[in-house]
Amino acid sequence: MKTVKYIGILITASTLFFSCVPLNQFRELEEANTELSDKVDNLSSEKELLEGRNEELKELADRLKKQVAELTADTLKKGREVRGCRNDLQKLRTEYEDLLTQLRNQTGAGDSEELLNYLQKLQEDLQAREDALIASERDLDAREKELQEAMAKLAAAQKELETAQAELAAQNQRLLELEQALARKDSASNALRQAIADALTGFDQSQLKVHIKNGKVYVSMEEKLLFGSGSYQVSAEGASAIRQVANVLGNKKDINIMIEGHTDPVPYSSGKLLDNWDLSVKRATSVTRILLENSAIDPSRVIAAGRGSHVPLVSNDTPEGKRKNRRTEIILTPRLDQILDILETN
Rank of each mutant, 00 (worst) to 15 (best):
N247Y: 03
T72R: 14
Q233V: 12
E162K: 14
H211K: 13
L76F: 01
D141W: 00
E149N: 09
S295I: 02
D38Y: 08
K65H: 06
L64M: 12
D204I: 11
R63T: 03
E28K: 13
E46S: 10
L332Q: 01
S231H: 08
G238Q: 05
Q180L: 10
H310K: 06
R86D: 09
L103S: 06
L178G: 07
L60I: 04
L92Q: 15
G84V: 01
R174L: 10
R301H: 15
L36M: 14
E179R: 09
N294V: 11
L133M: 13
A191V: 11
L226Q: 07
A164I: 02
A188H: 00
E293D: 12
P265S: 15
S19K: 09
C20A: 15
G321D: 10
I331F: 00
R143E: 15
E30Q: 11
D98P: 00
H262V: 02
D198A: 13
L336P: 02
A156L: 05
I257A: 07
K58N: 02
L116D: 08
N276L: 04
K324T: 09
R143N: 12
D317N: 14
F26V: 09
V302P: 08
T263G: 06
L60P: 02
V266S: 12
T163S: 08
S44C: 05
Q123A: 15
V82A: 06
V4N: 11
N172M: 02
L249A: 04
L140A: 01
A164M: 05
P299G: 11
T163A: 08
T285E: 10
G306P: 04
R93N: 09
G250N: 10
N346T: 10
S300T: 15
L29G: 11
R93F: 05
L29P: 02
D41V: 05
N346S: 11
L126N: 07
E149D: 08
E56D: 09
L100A: 07
I257R: 08
Y218A: 08
A142W: 00
N346A: 11
R104S: 12
Q338H: 14
T285K: 00
L175A: 02
K2F: 09
P299D: 12
N256R: 13
S136M: 12
A166L: 04
R86N: 06
A170P: 02
I11N: 15
Y268F: 14
R301L: 15
D74P: 01
Q148E: 06
Q127M: 07
V248P: 05
A241Q: 07
E144M: 09
V40R: 03
S286G: 11
L119P: 06
L161K: 02
V314F: 04
L274Y: 05
D125K: 03
A132G: 03
Q205M: 10
I196N: 03
L76Q: 10
V311I: 08
A181R: 00
K209W: 03
L336R: 10
Q180V: 11
R143T: 09
I303S: 03
R129C: 14
A169D: 04
K209F: 01
T345S: 13
S112L: 03
S231K: 14
R301M: 14
D88K: 12
D88G: 10
G250M: 07
L122R: 06
L29R: 15
K121V: 13
G202A: 15
L249F: 08
E149A: 07
L226W: 00
Q173D: 04
S206K: 14
Y218I: 15
L292D: 00
Q158W: 06
A135Q: 13
L168W: 02
Q244H: 06
I196Y: 06
D278R: 05
L178E: 01
